[in-house]
């Protein structure tokens, strides 16, 4: 065991940041990190931070412009929407749903994909052939179309949207992990572990997974941005998140018809999506520069 420890790079966890720093990825993108953190705070804080109940209609304050614009009021800093709901509160509530769906989709899709990829890569043979052909089949379907069909089949709602996103993204993880495993498998420390009599699943979990973890993490962070866009695209097509839940994509889709009369209905959620996706991508790129300088991802 001690022989393998040296060859195996330190795992993820607490040392991640330090490793990144040293590896030459440079300074972490401060603004992006701040925005990501802000999103997480908004998602966790939710109701406590929001000035209003996000889905409470107020028919006396419909389409109030942002505070600084003509006709705006300080009561609604970013204005109100077509049912008199406070935009700021809806953005905060939207952060929760957008992050929840994206996060859950990435986590669950990642877990499934990693497990299957690990199995395929390590076990090889028939298992690998079957799993990889299924992966190919899923990857050959354009993901938004697959999502659309699944939504039509399963119905809308946050749970189903997450499920749909999981179904559309697990295959990428499986493919990535399998290729990582295939290359790691041949390395000396894994061979040694096998000689030392460790069971296959122990080898896979203790030795192979930690080595593949960095690539998985990078893919996951980049995937959050992709998931946010997928969710908003589904909402745009009318089959994503549905009221009374609030998401940025939904707010954008519902405010879209009002684009010429009330720009703030589309600009704020659009901005939120762009900023969030850019931040997660920047974070992912930074990690990638550290872990994966040759751009295998």
């Amino acid at each position: 065991m001690s022989a393998t420890a040296e060859e195996r790079p330190a795992g993820a966890g607490g040392l991640l940041g330090a490793r990144l720093w040293r590896s030459g990825a440079g300074r972490p993108p401060l603004l992006a990190t701040a925005i990501c953190l802000l999103m997480v705070v908004a998602a966790l804080g939710g109701g406590a931070i929001a000035p209003y109940v996000p889905d409470e209609a107020d028919f006396t304050a419909i389409l109030v412009p942002p505070a600084w614009a003509e006709g705006g009021s300080l009561a609604h800093l970013l204005g109100t929407d077509q049912l008199g709901r406070d935009m700021l509160s809806r953005l905060i509530a939207g952060a929760r749903i957008s992050l929840l769906t994206a996060g859950a989709a990435v986590l669950a899709g990642g877990t499934i994909g990693v497990t299957l990829g690990l199995a395929a890569g390590y076990l090889g043979g028939v298992v690998e052939a079957v799993i990889m052909r299924i992966v190919d089949a899923f990857l050959a379907l354009p993901f938004i179309l697959m999502a659309l069909a699944f939504v039509a089949a399963l119905g809308t709602g946050v749970g189903n949207i997450i499920l749909v996103m999981v179904l559309t993204n697990w295959a990428r993880y499986a493919r990535l992990v399998r290729s990582e495993v295939v290359s790691i498998k041949k390395r000396d420390f894994v061979l040694l572990a096998r000689v030392a009599g460790l069971r296959p699943w122990q080898i896979a979990l203790r030795h192979i997974l930690p080595n593949a973890l960095t690539s998985i993490l990078v893919l996951a962070v980049l995937d959050v941005g992709r998931a946010i866009i997928l969710e908003s695209s589904l909402s745009f097509l009318g089959v994503g998140i549905q009221p009374p839940d609030v998401s940025w994509g939904l707010a954008l889709a519902e405010g879209r018809t009002y684009m010429t009369v009330a720009w703030w209905l589309t600009v704020w959620p659009g901005l939120a999506i762009v900023l969030a996706v850019m931040s997660f991508n920047a974070l992912g790129d930074w990690m990638k520069a550290g872990f994966d300088p040759r751009g295998r991802l």
């Binding site: 209609a57 077509q82 049912l83 809308t156 089959v239 009221p243 519902e254």
Partner: peptide, 18 residues
Amino acid sequence: QGTGRVPQARETLQGVAA
């Protein structure tokens, strides 16, 4: 009706619920 042919279908139902 999340998608459909009626204008403001989503807003209307949300308003009724309110």
